[in-house]
């Protein structure tokens, strides 16, 4: 237990001293502010553009902005945050393979599963904290300017969107154990998400795939209800747990 804790401590120290922690911190704060800001500025933007839009035959009617617009922005921007997070963290294993730093720790008797568990834990914890910060800021602004109660299933839609992030993190862990460079890790993770996304176009399996969880907009507009997501939710949870569980025996056999 103590060895696990000291490896986790090492991972956190690395996040802080490499500057990644602060960078991601600021980025997620920025996203958090921008969501309501863009919603707030939309009418003003449309107004300034109305002349040129009118020329091209579009008429602009005055729009009223609600908290829903702010949350639409949230669901639109959070994938950007996740992408930046995964790109920055995709080297969490591969960097250690390339430099050989893990070799020394392992010859000191550190059990291999603790490496996987520590890194998966640190990634999940950071993602959760960043996500909560981004959500919190958007929530507070939306509550200040508008009324959050118009958004239906808000907590549920936000939680399943977070779970999708956890799923992507578990993929990152799995492929980090399989591959040696972070470009292959990114390609494989990207590939998996793309497959899930494309599979979402097939009506038959549409509601089973993990990317179905990213559809927060229909939930907050009340076009869809939480019950529709149960299958996808369970599948994603199982896949997430499975990815981490498979990673451990794979890592035990990995040639370093």
């Amino acid at each position: 237990m103590k060895t696990l804790f000291s490896f986790i401590k090492k991972e956190f120290t690395e996040q802080v001293r490499s500057g990644k922690l602060w960078l991601l911190f600021i980025i997620f704060i920025l996203f958090g502010i921008m969501n309501p800001a863009i919603a707030k500025l939309t009418p003003w933007l449309l107004e300034t553009l109305s002349d040129s839009l009118a020329e091209s035959g579009m008429t602009v009617t005055s729009v009223t902005v609600t908290a829903l617009d702010s949350w639409v922005q949230f669901f639109k921007n959070i994938p950007m945050g996740l992408i930046v997070f995964i790109i920055l963290e995709s080297s969490i294993f591969t960097k250690e393979y390339a430099s050989g730093t893990l070799l020394l720790s392992l010859t000191k008797g550190l059990e291999r599963y603790k490496v996987v568990v520590s890194k998966a834990f640190v990634l999940s914890a950071l993602w959760t904290v960043y996500y909560v910060i981004c959500f919190g800021i958007t929530y507070l602004y939306s509550a200040y300017f508008w009324d959050n109660s118009v958004a239906q299933n808000l907590v549920f839609s936000v939680v399943i969107r977070w779970l999708f992030g956890m799923f992507v993190i578990s993929l990152t862990v799995l492929f980090s154990v399989v591959f040696k460079t972070n470009t292959s890790v990114l390609a494989a993770v990207g590939g998996c998400v793309a497959v899930s996304y494309l599979a979402g176009f097939l009506p038959k399996i549409k509601s089973f795939v993990p990317t179905y969880l990213t559809d927060g907009n229909s939930l907050i507009y009340g076009l869809s209800e939480s019950g529709n997501y149960t299958v996808s939710l369970i599948i994603t949870l199982l896949l997430t747990v499975a990815c981490v569980c498979i990673s451990i025996p794979l890592f035990n056999k990995k040639q370093l």
Partner: peptide, 21 residues
């Protein structure tokens, strides 16, 4: 030998000591 470059020498030895229990 490659060590965690973000640590200082005493910190690294402390880390090594900790993981050996």
């Amino acid at each position: 030998p490659e060590f965690y470059s973000f640590m200082t020498a005493p910190e690294y030895l402390r880390f090594c000591g900790e993981i050996t229990g």
